[in-house]
């Protein structure tokens, strides 16, 4: 019995050392710059935008604030980042809510497809972000969803392993130290520390222009200008597709979890559908059922301007001018919707 207790004691010592060290590393590892920035100005923010490059590149919080009734001293901020997924939005929402003050009232979240899949690369910034958003709650949620999903067991196991791997990497901060060391020696800034993500007005918005576009975006633009049929093809396509069909069980549960999370902190979520080229399933039906508040811009009859060639930088993003006009419209729709909601 004594031996048993002595071994348990050693186990406790090991766990204690491991946990203390992990906590210390956790405190040293910075969060993504936009979250740290949000924390520093949380007292001034009443609206937060979350989403992919559709948000990051197209929603200008300065214009948004000009177009709505605003209490003095408050403002909106754009926390969008290219390639964001619904799961990443879930994690960011959790972090934003944890850092927010009572002033935060609205969170405009881009309606994105709900997926359990992830691409393989882990060494680039997208990969790093994926590790970052595998926080405890998001990981637990996704792991449970993988087990619940109706995929074949081999696929389930592979997905489960990948999410678990990311969660472990997040929890143990795997690679953070080596990246810090390498970048310190090279005299470079850490990942997520590039101040260009704030844009000119320091609101987190960077319009898509020749000067701000990266290599991929420029290539995409070139292809688009040579062959804009992708955009024109969306026209008949979107008119025919109706409401996009019912939400997937994963989508419903994710949305519900996010809504509940926000509700607990007294924040309301407004879901926003970007003028996509395809109709994303589920969102309209969720709105119809009263489960979410939705602003849908993928309505070609109502917003034909979003599908005009001259407003587009590439098939998926608007030009700066297009983005500004869209922000104005979004502000109006937002104002209308939020005023109609019971306080």
């Amino acid at each position: 019995m004594n031996l048993f207790f002595s071994r348990c004691g050693l186990g406790v010592c090991f766990v204690l050392g491991f946990a203390l060290s992990s906590v210390a590393v956790d405190a040293l590892v910075p969060e993504r710059l936009k979250l740290e920035w949000f924390e520093s100005i949380a007292d001034e923010v009443d609206v937060v935008f979350l989403g992919s490059s559709h948000v990051f590149r197209q929603i200008d919080p300065v214009i948004f604030d000009q177009e709505r009734q605003l209490e003095p001293g408050l403002r909106a901020v754009n926390l969008g980042a290219p390639g964001m997924t619904l799961a990443e939005e879930m994690y960011l929402l959790e972090r934003v809510l944890a850092k927010s003050t009572a002033h935060l009232r609205w969170c405009v979240v881009e309606a994105l497809p709900a997926e359990l899949q992830m691409k393989n690369a882990e060494v680039n910034d997208f990969g790093k972000r994926r590790v970052e958003w595998h926080g405890f709650h998001v990981s637990m949620f996704l792991l449970a969803e993988v087990l619940r999903s109706d995929q074949v067991w081999a696929e389930k196991w592979s997905l489960f392993q990948r999410h678990l791997r990311h969660a472990v990497m997040h929890f143990f901060h795997i690679g953070e130290g080596s990246e810090w060391l390498a970048k310190t020696i090279r005299g470079e800034g850490l990942a997520f520390s590039n101040p260009s993500v704030f844009g000119q007005g320091r609101r987190g918005y960077v319009p898509l222009e020749m000067s701000t576009a990266d290599e991929n975006a420029l290539k995409q633009r070139e292809e688009f200008l040579q062959d804009p049929r992708l955009l024109w093809g969306a026209r008949p396509h979107l008119s025919k597709e109706g409401d996009g069909g019912p939400p997937s069980p994963l989508q419903s549960r994710m949305v519900q979890a996010m809504e509940e999370m926000a509700q607990e902190r007294g924040v309301r979520l407004i879901w926003w559908l970007h003028p996509n080229l395809d109709r994303l399933s589920g969102w309209r039906q969720l709105a119809k059922a009263g489960q979410i508040q939705l602003i849908a811009f993928d309505d070609i009859e109502r917003y034909p301007q979003f599908y005009k060639l001259r407003w587009h930088f590439d098939p998926y993003h608007l030009t700066r001018k297009g983005a500004e006009k869209m922000t104005v419209l979004l502000a109006h729709e937002f104002q209308e919707l939020t005023q109609a909601l019971p306080q």
């Binding site: 050693l10 186990g11 010592c13 090991f14 766990v15 204690l16 050392g17 491991f18 946990a19 203390l20 060290s21 992990s22 590393v25 143990f172 130290g177």
Partner: peptide
């Protein structure tokens, strides 16, 4: 055991 935990985490 304690030092092992610290070093392992690091």
């Amino acid at each position: 055991a304690f030092a092992y935990g610290v070093l392992f985490a690091l």
